[in-house]
């Protein structure tokens, strides 16, 4: 066994940012153990993304191509990558922790009697893989001790995509053997849920509300704060799941990604699914009664207290300041 394989994912015809971050993680593992790195692209026709990958400092690019890989299916990807891994016998296989990877990588690892160490946020000497537990309130350190390759997926934003140097790698082709009957699911075309009328992405100021608000009837106090600030109102997933605010106001991995000048999080604990949607904000303020809430790990300013007291007081203070 030798070498590190990093499986890159296509997004709108190009390699997505989180895949470059996975490559950075793969290069970190490679540097720890003095091993070469292969970039793996997969699909029915991979020429353009293979060319894109070849501009980075990797030892080679492997194009896993088959007509049955034109659309993503768990069966197709699992079969193809299983064959590639058997042939290459790498010590580690690194993925971006995307919805797609979550759909097949656990099965791929299990097929080889291995376990995916998923959603990794840091890699230390050893290697030791750090991932979040209890919705980000704790961090767990994991070690791989299987006899096969170590499967790892990395969280969005955890590794530096811009740290990868450029290069000029050669590409090789790998043609897996797949039979159409082995693909048991039939995927449809992606579609948008509903017309998006609120563009949170361009809002300079956002007030966002979470579970701490307890009931829909309490929402007006947060709306008043947003109005006083001249901010858009947004929410974490549970608020939209309950139908208290429309889905289009949801910030997080399944909603919109925002990076306003000010993101004011009210009663949001800060589960990773929410943080990935807002941690690029210029200034983050958190109001939460739990001093251990993970939202405080990304906040610039925090008020630990009862939002039902703090939010109205803040609304008044802002009105006063604006005169």
């Amino acid at each position: 066994m030798s070498g590190i394989c990093v499986v890159l994912e296509e997004r709108d015809g190009r390699i997505g940012r989180i895949s470059w971050e996975a490559l950075a993680a793969g290069k970190l593992l490679a540097a720890q153990s003095g091993q070469p790195v292969s970039a793996v692209v997969i699909g029915a026709s991979t020429e353009s993304i293979a060319n894109e990958a070849a501009t980075k400092a990797v030892n080679n690019v492997i194009r896993v191509e088959h007509p049955l890989l034109a659309h993503y299916t768990s069966d197709g990807y699992t079969i193809a990558l299983h064959q590639l891994i058997e042939k290459e016998s790498p010590t580690a296989v690194v993925f971006p922790h995307t919805y797609q990877v979550r759909d097949f990588a656990p099965a791929l690892a299990a097929r080889m009697n291995e376990v995916l160490i998923g959603d990794v946020v840091a890699i230390g000497e050893g290697p030791v893989f750090t991932r979040q537990l209890l919705q980000g309130r704790l961090a767990g350190n994991y070690r791989h001790q299987g006899s096969g390759p170590c499967f790892v997926s990395v969280q969005a934003g955890a590794f530096r995509a811009d740290a990868i140097e450029s290069g000029s790698a050669e590409a090789t082709n790998f043609t897996p053997t797949i039979d159409a009957a082995q693909i048991r699911t039939e995927p449809g075309e992606p579609f948008r849920g509903s017309a998006q009328t609120v563009d949170l992405g361009s809002a300079p100021l956002i007030v966002s509300v979470g579970r701490g608000i307890k009931e829909a009837d309490n929402l007006p106090i947060v709306q008043e704060l947003a109005t006083a600030l001249g901010a858009e109102l947004a929410a974490s997933r549970p608020i939209c799941d309950n139908g208290w605010l429309p889905m289009e106001r949801q910030v997080g991995s399944s909603g919109q990604t925002v990076s306003p000048k000010l993101y004011l999080a009210v009663g949001i604990s800060g589960a990773i699914q929410h943080l990935v949607g807002m941690k690029g904000s210029q200034c983050i303020v958190a109001i939460n009664k739990d001093p251990d809430a993970p939202i405080f790990e990304v906040a610039d300013y925090g008020i630990v207290g009862d939002l039902f007291e703090v939010v109205p007081a803040l609304t008044e203070a802002i009105k006063a300041a604006k005169g």
Partner: peptide, 24 residues
């Protein structure tokens, strides 16, 4: 197991948060 949980810890802070004191 293949993936061994060796230990848990409180996470490292990504930003230095100023916690603002006082009543509401």
């Amino acid at each position: 197991p293949v993936a061994v949980l060796d230990g848990i810890a409180h996470p490292k802070k990504q930003r230095s948060t100023q916690i603002i004191p006082g009543d509401a």
